[in-house]
């Protein structure tokens, strides 16, 4: 893969959160890349750092979050080094983000109109649109996300709308900015199951229609599989596996991925899955070596000491696990 054909490239990203007493070492050297027009999935349990990764890309981490190392390249622009104007421009016109919780992503004390017009005003800055023009663009966006009665929605406050409607509004807003890349952070949590499918279908259609690239974070593994070409699996702030969507589910390599897929809720299951034993890592004191080793059924001595790197297993599969390292490599590392 050459540099030129990469839309977004995150390289060796470290993110820490600082509270008064503790430092939380969340992202621990994460690298991902997305080609133009590519749809990529990001899966992993809650607290794996998926949201942190997406927020880091747009540089909208809360103030206690700090990117301490790494590179985020959007085309050729390093988002960690570029000027504020460039960053704002990318946020306005290139990359859009759908936030996790539709109930929390809209500002409770302003009408949808006020919020959308403000956003559109800066997206179309310099093009002499009047307020009424911006309102028409907002209406058009709301129609595009299949909201019935968009005029009423536009004049409503968020709490006057249902969860599904709010998520459609959030998608409409994200679409306005996402002219190249859409970051969809669990767009269906907190929604009913029937609406979940509708929303994912809608996102999928819109992305197709507008030829966008997408990073989709979701717990609905089946949907991720059908909507994306390639999937990254995250655990404890690391990418532990990368594979084409079709192959990942048939033949998961990393022990964590295996457990994740095994335990995914299935409609036809006759009993509940066991779940993965143990707890997600404590980011204040992350386990040394592989962050998954305390919960891993195959943990070896080396797993407690040496952090496994993402290695190529065959031409399109990558995994970060000592099980797949060549034996003599392990010997060398142990010395």
């Amino acid at each position: 893969m050459s540099e030129a054909s990469t839309l977004l490239k995150v390289e060796d990203l470290y993110v820490k959160y600082r509270s008064y007493w503790y430092t939380y070492h969340v992202l621990d050297g994460v690298s991902i890349r997305i080609k133009p027009g590519e749809k990529v999935g990001l899966i992993g349990e809650s607290g794996a750092g998926k949201t942190t990764l997406l927020k880091s890309i747009l540089r909208i981490l809360p103030p206690q979050g700090r990117i301490t190392k790494g590179k985020i390249l959007y085309k050729d622009i390093n988002l960690l080094r570029c000027s504020k104007g460039t960053l704002l421009e990318i946020r306005r016109k290139k990359v859009g983000m759908i936030f996790q919780d539709p109930l929390a992503a809209l500002n409770p004390v302003f009408t949808i109109k006020e919020q959308m017009v403000d956003i559109l005003k800066y997206i179309y800055k310099g093009s002499n649109y009047k307020k009424s023009d911006l309102e028409n663009i907002a209406l058009e966006l709301l129609r595009e996300v299949m909201l019935p009665d968009p005029e009423r929605v536009l004049n409503s406050y968020p709490f006057q709308l249902s969860g599904g409607m709010r998520q459609r509004v959030v998608i409409a807003m994200a679409l306005a900015s996402a002219q190249e890349l859409l970051l969809a952070d669990e767009p269906t949590t907190n929604l009913d199951v029937t609406i979940q499918a509708q929303i994912l279908k809608l996102i999928s259609n819109l992305v197709e229609k507008r030829r966008l690239s997408m990073v989709l974070v979701s717990h609905a593994l089946g949907m991720v599989r059908s909507m994306t070409k390639r999937i990254y699996v995250m655990y404890g702030g690391n990418i532990v596996e990368e594979a084409p969507s079709s192959k990942l589910f048939n033949e998961p390599l990393h022990p964590y991925t295996q457990l994740l897929i095994e335990n995914a809720p299935k409609i036809i299951a006759t009993k509940l899955g066991e779940g993965i034993k143990g707890n997600p890592p404590d980011y204040r004191y992350p386990p040394p070596g592989c962050r998954f080793h305390p919960r891993c059924p195959y943990a070896m001595d080396i797993c407690k000491k040496v952090k496994p790197l993402l290695i190529k297993v065959n031409n399109d599969r990558y995994v970060a696990c000592h099980l797949y390292a060549e034996k003599d490599m392990i010997k060398k590392l142990e010395v």
Binding site: L58, I60, P62, Q64, M97, Q100, N107, I123
Partner: peptide, 16 residues
Amino acid sequence: NISKDYVLTFMSHGLP
């Protein structure tokens, strides 16, 4: 409030 999504949304859209 500044770490809430309903504020970050507007950051993500590039508002000043």
